[in-house]
Computed example of a mutant assay.
Amino acid sequence: MRFTPLSKHLLTIITYCAPTFMAMAQQALSTSSNLAEVHITPQVCIRDQLSESCQVELDAELKFTTPMNICLLIEALNIKQCFVHVKQVKFQQLLSIDENTTITIVNSDNNDLVYSKTLAIAEFKPANQRPRRNLGWIL
């Protein structure tokens, strides 16, 4: 039995994720001055080649310096969740996505953009393995 090294699989994932990470680094994100902390995970959803969509648990935690009325929008999935007069927000949602999806947080009082982030999809393509040949030779 022959095992492929883990580094080979990681290299495959990194190869497919590198363009996504570069695009995310170049993307200019608008942030509000009232926004103290933002934690939105995951940044990338990895699916195998056979899957059409990617299942991911979105966790968002936001902290503001002053209480705000905000809405979290995921337009591709028609999700809109609003919060009234909050200094801290925690949001969890199971998502099924099939393309890069933008998560937007807006001030619901004046529709100003508070924060925007893209949840990217990467595709995992395992390396082709040689078929095992068992010729049935018994010695």
Rank of each mutant, 00 (worst) to 15 (best):
M1T: 09
M1G: 13
R2Q: 13
P5D: 14
L6M: 09
L10F: 07
T12P: 00
I14C: 08
I14E: 11
T15L: 07
T15S: 11
Y16W: 03
C17F: 04
C17M: 06
A18C: 11
P19L: 02
P19E: 00
T20P: 04
M22T: 12
M22W: 08
A23E: 14
Q27D: 12
Q27T: 15
L29W: 06
L29E: 13
L29H: 14
T31Q: 13
S32C: 02
N34S: 04
N34P: 04
L35I: 09
L35H: 06
V38T: 13
I40G: 08
P42H: 10
C45Y: 06
C45L: 02
C45G: 11
R47A: 10
S51F: 06
S51T: 12
S51Y: 06
E52R: 12
Q55P: 10
L58K: 10
E61T: 12
F64Q: 12
T65M: 07
T66W: 04
M68E: 15
N69K: 08
L73G: 04
I74Q: 04
I74H: 01
E75Q: 14
L77K: 07
V84Q: 13
K90W: 10
F91V: 07
Q93L: 14
L94Y: 04
L95Y: 01
S96T: 12
S96K: 10
S96Y: 03
S96Q: 13
I97H: 01
E99V: 05
N100K: 07
T101S: 03
T102Q: 13
I105P: 00
V106W: 00
V106I: 10
N107H: 05
S108W: 00
N110K: 00
V114Y: 05
S116R: 09
T118K: 02
T118R: 02
T118M: 02
L119H: 00
A120G: 01
A122E: 00
A122P: 00
F124N: 02
K125I: 13
P126C: 03
P126Q: 01
A127R: 09
A127S: 14
Q129P: 02
R130N: 11
P131V: 05
L135P: 00
W137R: 01
I138M: 06
L139C: 03
